[in-house]
């Protein structure tokens, strides 16, 4: 630096000039930077200048949008768009076959089935697993897609329709069924709701109160059988579940059944037509159908 020569202190042991700083008797030697380090430092500066010329670098200049473009006209955004287009292009060979194929053909053609299952599994993970679970095992209020219980139908065509238009969605073609909130809307009294719950439980052998079951049966015939059917086997056109089997979407204990009748459920699923292209929806239908519960036409 600009220290006069007579003020410079030379360390006796190493013969190297000190910086003049002292901490508790410890002094710092003023060794020069290693030559190799300096060369790398200079090389970095030169590299930075070259980089600024060729790559987007200086932001906020008048006339430049965002930042200077650089001679290479490099843009990560453009690269991603190009990669995505290339991906679509590569996929389209298979996807066009999926779109064109008849649904029943897909499962009997090993190559198409492989494509559909792979695409379906990946699309399921991205879009459906949030509610239905990664293994399509479902959760309370979200059906298990592995079993043989279907609210709206388990053939390939029905599954695809459900995915495409959704359930109680805003789409015109949506699956629609509307269970009234019998208790909350005061269509039935609290006692009547409890009796109907008792009758519903008795259908799968979970009730001991025969008198309540008899009373509930009457109310069921008047209020519920319209949708759930006289024998309570459900109605897939309306998404009314079969009440006689072992499967419960929200739970089969007494309190839950009472709550279901009291305030109704009417869960929803979005229409995927506007979000996924047709080939992916078809692949999803094949994938869900292949999970083990798929029904034949």
């Amino acid at each position: 630096m600009s220290t006069p020569d007579n003020e410079r202190e030379i360390d006796a042991v190493s013969g190297v000039e000190t910086t003049g700083h002292e901490w508790d008797g410890i002094k710092e030697l003023n060794n020069p930077l290693p030559r190799w380090w300096l060369w790398i430092f200079y090389a970095c500066i030169i590299w930075a200048v070259i980089y600024m010329v060729f790559m987007p670098a200086i932001p906020g200049l008048p006339g430049a949008e965002g930042a200077t473009r650089g001679l290479r006209n490099h843009s990560e955004r453009v690269n991603v768009a190009r990669d995505m287009a290339a991906l679509e292009e590569a996929r389209s060979v298979y996807f066009s076959r999926l779109t064109e194929a008849d649904l029943s053909e897909i499962e009997s053609d090993p190559e198409l089935l492989t494509i559909a299952l792979a695409a379906g599994e990946s699309a399921f993970g991205d879009n459906c697993a949030t509610c239905h679970g990664a293994g399509a095992q479902g959760a309370r209020g979200y059906p298990n897609l592995n079993d043989d219980v279907w609210l709206w139908g388990g053939t390939l065509e029905e599954i695809r329709r459900t995915i495409r238009y959704g359930i109680r969605s805003e789409h015109m073609e949506t699956r629609m069924g509307d269970m009234p909130a019998f208790g909350r809307d005061e269509l039935l009294s609290r006692e009547e709701v409890n009796d109907v719950a008792e009758y519903v439980l008795s259908l799968s052998g979970h009730s001991e109160d025969a008198a309540a079951v008899d009373r509930g049966a009457e109310t069921f015939a008047a209020q519920c059988a319209v949708c759930h059917g006289d024998n309570a086997m459900g109605n897939r056109d309306l998404g009314a579940p079969n009440l006689t089997d072992t499967d419960w979407l929200y739970g089969g204990d007494r309190e839950t059944v009472r709550e279901t009748i009291w305030s109704a459920r009417n869960s929803t699923m979005p229409a995927w037509e506007s979000r996924l292209d047709d080939a992916v929806i078809t692949a999803l239908a094949v994938y869900v159908h292949s999970r083990g519960g798929g029904e034949e036409d």
Partner: peptide, 18 residues
Amino acid sequence: RDRNPNYVQLSDGSVRNG
């Protein structure tokens, strides 16, 4: 063997593994 789901209960009470 499928681990997710570990098993699937069917409507007639039988159980299926994938």
